[in-house]
Amino acid sequence: MELTKTYLKDLTYQINGAAIEVHKELGPGLLESVYHKCLKKELSNRKISFKSEFSVPLNFKGLDIETDLRCDLLIENCIVIELKAIEALAPIHQAQILTYMKLLKAPKGILYNFHCINLFNEGQKTFVNEYFKNLPE
C-alpha cells in the first residue's frame, strides 16, 4: 500500500464511519474509555488495523526518553486518533494531537469528542501536517 492523500482520505472516511456508528449506538454522556473500547471493536469489525494505547516514543537530543505519553489509536500506522468525552475541547487538545502526529511521523490526525449531539458536525476535527503536504495525490 502506497501512502497517498487519496488513501488517507478514503481511510478517514472509513474511520469516521466507525466513530459515527459508535456514537449513534451509545450517544453522548459516557466515559472516554467506553467509547475507546467500542471504537476498537468497530474498527476490528471493519478490518481496519490499529495500535491502541501504546507509549509514544520520544527522542530528545538523540536520546530515547521513556514517557507516559499514550496514543489512543494509531490507524494503519498513518492516522493518529485522539478520543475525548468532555464538555468542550480546549486548545491543549489540538496541541496534543499535533504533537503526537509529529512524534509518530503521522501525516493525519483526527480528534473526536463524543460528548456532543452530532459527532460529525460538532465532535470531530481533522488535522494534517508537513508529512501530509509532501505525499503524492
Results as ranks from 00 to 15, higher is better:
residue 46 R to K: 15
residue 86 I to T: 13
residue 54 F to E: 11
residue 29 G to W: 10
residue 11 L to S: 06
residue 111 L to E: 05
residue 19 A to M: 05
residue 22 V to M: 11
residue 14 Q to P: 00
residue 44 S to D: 14
residue 45 N to V: 00
residue 25 E to P: 00
residue 84 K to Y: 11
residue 90 A to R: 15
residue 28 P to C: 02
residue 49 S to R: 12
residue 86 I to G: 02
residue 74 L to P: 04
residue 107 P to V: 01
residue 83 L to T: 07
residue 48 I to E: 07
residue 22 V to G: 08
residue 27 G to R: 09
residue 60 F to I: 13
residue 93 H to S: 03
residue 81 I to E: 07
residue 82 E to T: 03
residue 35 Y to R: 06
residue 68 D to T: 14
residue 105 K to I: 02
residue 93 H to I: 02
residue 67 T to A: 08
residue 63 L to I: 08
residue 114 F to N: 11
residue 48 I to T: 08
residue 113 N to G: 07
residue 39 L to A: 10
residue 102 K to R: 15
residue 40 K to C: 13
residue 68 D to P: 00
residue 46 R to N: 15
residue 115 H to I: 00
residue 32 E to L: 07
residue 107 P to C: 01
residue 109 G to C: 10
residue 105 K to T: 12
residue 15 I to W: 09
residue 65 I to S: 02
residue 65 I to A: 02
residue 83 L to I: 14
residue 79 I to L: 06
residue 27 G to C: 08
residue 20 I to A: 13
residue 46 R to T: 04
residue 33 S to Q: 14
residue 110 I to G: 09
residue 18 A to R: 12
residue 40 K to H: 01
residue 103 L to C: 04
residue 31 L to G: 05
residue 25 E to L: 13
residue 30 L to Q: 11
residue 66 E to K: 15
residue 28 P to A: 14
residue 71 C to D: 02
residue 31 L to W: 10
residue 90 A to M: 14
residue 91 P to A: 12
residue 75 I to L: 01
residue 76 E to L: 01
residue 49 S to P: 00
residue 98 L to P: 02
residue 35 Y to D: 04
residue 52 S to F: 03
residue 113 N to M: 07
residue 39 L to W: 11
residue 29 G to A: 10
residue 57 P to T: 04
residue 20 I to S: 10
residue 84 K to R: 12
residue 41 K to R: 14
residue 112 Y to M: 08
residue 56 V to Q: 01
residue 83 L to K: 09
residue 96 Q to E: 05
residue 74 L to G: 05
residue 23 H to A: 09
residue 51 K to L: 13
residue 109 G to A: 09
residue 111 L to C: 05
residue 26 L to G: 06
residue 28 P to D: 02
residue 11 L to M: 12
residue 42 E to W: 03
residue 18 A to H: 06
residue 103 L to F: 04
residue 72 D to S: 06
residue 68 D to M: 12
residue 114 F to Q: 11
residue 22 V to C: 12
residue 18 A to L: 05
residue 111 L to Y: 08
residue 78 C to P: 01
residue 93 H to Y: 11
residue 76 E to R: 01
residue 27 G to W: 10
residue 29 G to T: 08
residue 39 L to M: 11
residue 97 I to V: 13
residue 111 L to R: 05
residue 15 I to M: 09
residue 11 L to G: 05
residue 64 D to T: 11
residue 57 P to C: 04
residue 60 F to T: 01
residue 93 H to E: 04
residue 46 R to I: 03
residue 115 H to A: 12
residue 98 L to T: 10
residue 23 H to E: 07
residue 89 L to C: 11
residue 25 E to A: 14
residue 84 K to C: 10
residue 82 E to K: 04
residue 54 F to H: 08
residue 57 P to W: 05
residue 25 E to T: 14
residue 83 L to A: 08
residue 57 P to H: 03
residue 91 P to Q: 15
residue 19 A to C: 04
residue 71 C to L: 09
residue 87 E to A: 13
residue 49 S to E: 12
residue 85 A to D: 09
residue 115 H to W: 14
residue 38 C to Q: 14
residue 79 I to M: 06
residue 28 P to H: 10
residue 24 K to I: 03
residue 50 F to T: 02
residue 20 I to N: 13
residue 57 P to Y: 05
residue 20 I to K: 13
residue 16 N to A: 00
